[in-house]
């Protein structure tokens, strides 16, 4: 039983990380109507920006993380201005291909700057807390708490601010948003800022949970998309639920499958959803 609960904890931690990525993918799809394949590598970039802050500039953890969120958002907006916004009129499929190119460019750039080896934020092993036989790492609490905090902020933004509502409106009906006088370009930029911040947070948390590596984000792309599809593409709240399901399923699969096949579990769940209910469990859009 304790073992099982321990796995549940791992699942929630992983699910929180996946959720931050999946929300971004879902928002981008809602607003720009394309599957952003560079999202995993955007996460990696955020993680390495934080590393640069911690190790390179010797900043305190929180300052480095804050800086990394901002820098990643800036890069996301920059990529949109330089590439995606120019290809937007062409077709979502061309955007997708372009994002695959961006994914590779980001990854190779990271490898050129920081090298191909594993990195960590802090050396030394922190002592886990123990509750009734359950071991919980301080970092795990920080990850889940941080992810929950960011999601709450996003929720408040989407529900209670003018531009948050405009984002939801544009996701619902981009033409009507334009007819209503909503500045859609600004909404797009805002979407990239939010997606960039969340992706960076996901990358940092992943780096805290495991290690930093140039393909860490790419490896999370499949679970992230699985979660977004599971929750219904274009539905950020569904993405959170989907992420928890995927995270838990991946960790629990280790009870019966070799751990190496964790990504396959995300894929299997995604296939089941695609076959059974392509709009996701909460009835989002079909791509």
């Amino acid at each position: 039983m304790i073992d099982f609960l321990q796995i549940v904890i791992y699942g929630i931690v992983l699910g929180s990380i996946i959720a931050l990525g999946a929300i971004g993918v879902s928002l981008i799809f809602g607003i720009l109507r394309f599957a952003h394949f560079a999202h995993g590598d955007l996460m990696t970039l955020g993680a390495y920006f934080a590393l640069a802050g911690v190790a390179g500039m010797s900043l305190p953890m929180f300052a480095a993380f804050g800086l990394a969120l901002g820098a990643t958002a800036l890069v996301a907006v920059g990529i949109d201005r330089a590439l995606y916004s120019r290809l937007q009129q062409v077709s979502p499929i061309i955007l997708l291909i372009s994002s695959v190119g961006v994914a590779l460019m980001l990854r190779s750039l990271i490898q050129m700057i920081w090298g191909p080896d594993n990195e960590i934020y802090q050396s030394g092993i922190s002592m886990p807390w123990t509750f009734a036989g359950l071991r919980i790492q301080p970092t795990q609490v920080m990850i889940v708490g941080g992810a929950a905090g960011l999601m709450l902020l996003l929720h408040l933004f989407l529900q209670h601010t003018r531009f948050g509502k405009a984002m939801r409106a544009m996701s619902d009906n981009p033409d009507l948003a334009r007819l209503s006088g909503i500045n859609t370009q600004r909404v797009v930029i805002l979407t990239w800022i939010i997606a960039g911040v969340l992706a960076a947070a996901a990358g940092i948390f992943l780096g805290m949970d495991t290690r930093l590596h140039p393909i860490m984000g790419w490896k999370l792309l499949l679970p992230v998309f699985a979660a977004a599809i599971f929750g219904g593409i274009g539905k950020p709240y569904g993405a959170v639920a989907g992420a928890l399901v995927i995270g838990l399923a991946q960790e629990m699969s280790t009870l019966i499958l070799p751990a190496a096949y964790k990504p396959a579990v995300a894929f299997a769940l995604m296939v089941i959803i695609l076959v059974w209910r392509p709009t996701g469990i909460f009835g989002g859009k079909v791509l």
């Binding site: 509502k165 939801r168 409106a169 996701s171 619902d172 009906n173 033409d175 009507l176 948003a177």
Partner: peptide, 8 residues
Amino acid sequence: EANVFPSL
């Protein structure tokens, strides 16, 4: 057609 934001 499509003249409201359905989820809002």
